[in-house]
Amino acid sequence: MLVKLLLIALLILAAWLLFSKSFNRSSRQRSLAANSKRSAPPKKLISLLNGDTAAAHRLFDKAQQRNPGQSSQWYWEKVTWDLERDRRW
């Protein structure tokens, strides 16, 4: 009888651990999706790219992959700063 109770308790614990991990994973994915929403690129960046908004969005996506967890504003500033830095001689 005691063995059955311990087995049931172990199964409940295992189910709870699996549920909590999947819950944490899905909430983390939701927060990443919320962070991935990007605003319009700044005019300064578009000017540096000669009006190429597609390039601006590609640079944004790449910066987001390399530096996860930042705000949309941060990524636009990072992309603009990197582009200006790379064009200096």
Rank of each mutant, 00 (worst) to 15 (best):
W76F: 10
T53S: 12
A9H: 06
L18I: 12
S36F: 12
L2R: 08
R38K: 07
N35S: 07
I8S: 10
A34Y: 02
M1E: 13
I46M: 04
S47Y: 13
R87F: 09
F60R: 04
L48Q: 01
N24W: 14
N50G: 03
P42T: 02
E77Y: 07
W74D: 05
K44V: 11
G51F: 07
H57L: 08
S20W: 14
W76L: 03
W76H: 10
Q73V: 00
A34S: 06
L17P: 02
S39T: 05
R38A: 11
R30P: 01
A54P: 02
S39Q: 07
V79L: 06
R28A: 14
S47R: 13
P42S: 04
A55L: 12
R28K: 13
S39W: 05
S20Y: 12
A40I: 00
V3Y: 15
A14I: 14
L17F: 15
K78H: 15
V3R: 14
Q29P: 03
V79K: 07
S27W: 07
A40T: 00
A56D: 07
D61K: 09
L7C: 08
W76D: 03
W74R: 03
L13V: 08
I46K: 05
S31I: 09
A34L: 06
A9M: 11
K78W: 09
S26H: 15
S20N: 11
P41V: 01
T53E: 15
L7A: 13
L11G: 15
L48C: 01
K43W: 05
K62C: 02
F23K: 15
A14L: 14
L2E: 15
A9F: 13
S31P: 01
G51C: 04
L83F: 10
A63I: 04
L13N: 12
S71V: 00
N50H: 12
L17G: 14
A34F: 03
A63S: 15
G51K: 02
K44L: 13
